[in-house]
Simulated scan of single mutants.
Amino acid sequence: MTQSINSAGVEKGRVVKMRGLDKKTPDQADGLRRMVKDKMNGLQEEIVEKPGVAAQGFPRVVAVTSGKGGVGKTNIVGNLAIALSRMGKRVLILDGDLGLANIDIIYGLHPEFTIKHVLTGEKDLKDVIVKGPEGVSVIPASSGLADLVHLTQGEKLNLLSEFDGLEEDYDIFLIDTGAGISSNIVYFNAAARERIVIATPEPTSITDAYALMKVMFTRHGTRTFKLLVNMVNNEAEADLVFKSLSNALLRFLQDISLEYMGCIKRDDHVLKSVKKQAPLLMLYPKSLAGKGINELAERFLSKGEDSSADGNIKFFFRRLVAPK
């Protein structure tokens, strides 16, 4: 199976930060629109001119996603971040489920501000980021936030400017996407450098995971995915899920590469930790699921970043808000 083409060489300069676009004169507004267009065009030129070059010294940008809900995705993101933080990595989570702020619940957080306040220019990003357990940083979601693809030009400029300075502050950037194939979820996955798809042994979960990868491939040409199988009774059950998806991809979508990241076993301690609104690794670090999370973190770091993956934090957000 082939790998996706990489794009590196992303512009390292800062984007001019502008607010209150609606209050500008027509000439100023036209100038700002041209600025956004020029930035986006410049980015596309770099993508074409520098394929296959891995970005160095940038955080790993990883979308954790699923074809259907109820597979434990958010719990995995929250605990994986803690495991990585304990291994010395600086981790930032973007709660990408714009309808439900689930990371807040997992961590027991009550943020006053969300990414919506950054988009509108009311707050700087540093005012929105909150500290979770074990030093993990979180960008809270905004319930009911309009589709990111519908941002105004002013909101796009604000967002790009705010995220320009994050490369030096974090080693790993995890995006907890929603479940399914809605436009926001697809764009989060397309813009990320790596994608971890969560599936369970349930037939509907396997079918929906395949559908998600198919949509990503057909709409955006995304070819590389990592698979984590959750809520399994044993490793043999997880192997069957991986083989089932691999066979389907080999038969219908041969250009996709699917990497197996292991499994997390079914564990009652997960539900107990959710009810207590505290991370599993903090309450039950020696549980079966806790062991699986730690093994996932070790495997994730040991395998390193896919050299054919593309993007970094700046590239992620430029790609996310670029005109579709």
Rank of each mutant, 00 (worst) to 15 (best):
A191I: 07
L145W: 00
K126I: 08
T204C: 08
L145D: 03
E155Q: 14
K123R: 15
M216I: 09
F173D: 00
Q153P: 04
H150D: 14
T200S: 14
I129C: 05
D176N: 05
T207G: 05
L174N: 01
G132F: 08
G121W: 04
T224V: 13
S143H: 02
Y107A: 13
K214R: 15
T224N: 14
D127P: 01
R195Q: 13
H117M: 07
T120P: 00
F188D: 05
H150Y: 08
L119N: 06
Y210H: 09
A209T: 04
D176I: 02
F163I: 02
V130T: 06
N189V: 06
V118L: 12
A199F: 03
H117R: 12
G154V: 09
I115H: 03
N189Q: 09
A190G: 05
E167W: 00
I105K: 08
D169G: 02
K116L: 10
V128L: 14
L151A: 11
L109I: 01
L148D: 01
E194D: 11
K156Y: 02
L160N: 05
F163W: 04
G154R: 07
S183D: 10
D208M: 09
L125E: 04
T218G: 05
M213N: 12
L228S: 07
F188Q: 09
L174V: 00
T177K: 10
E155W: 01
H220F: 15
E194C: 03
I105Y: 04
R193D: 07
Y187H: 09
L160V: 06
G144I: 00
N158I: 12
D171G: 02
S161F: 00
V186M: 09
I129A: 09
P201Y: 11
K226H: 12
S143W: 01
T177E: 10
E202R: 06
T204S: 15
A141R: 02
Q153V: 14
G165Q: 03
P203Q: 11
T222S: 06
H110S: 15
G144L: 02
L159H: 03
F188N: 07
S183V: 12
G144V: 01
G108P: 12
D147R: 07
V149W: 06
D127C: 06
L166H: 02
G178W: 05
L125R: 03
A190W: 06
K156C: 06
F225P: 01
L109K: 04
P203H: 08
G221T: 14
S143D: 02
S183W: 11
M216L: 15
E202F: 08
S142E: 11
V197M: 13
K214C: 12
R195T: 13
I175C: 03
P140A: 14
G180Q: 05
L148E: 03
D147G: 11
I103H: 04
T200V: 07
V128A: 12
L228G: 06
S143G: 12
I196T: 03
R193M: 15
V149S: 14
S137C: 13
A192H: 10
M216S: 11
P203D: 15
F217L: 10
A211V: 12
A199C: 13
L119W: 01
E155V: 09
G221D: 11
N184L: 04
S142N: 08
Y107H: 13
A209S: 15
L109F: 10
V118M: 08
L119V: 08
F188M: 12
N158S: 12
I106L: 15
D147S: 13
I196S: 11
A191C: 06
L227Q: 12
A191F: 10
D171F: 05
I105H: 04
A146D: 13
V215N: 03
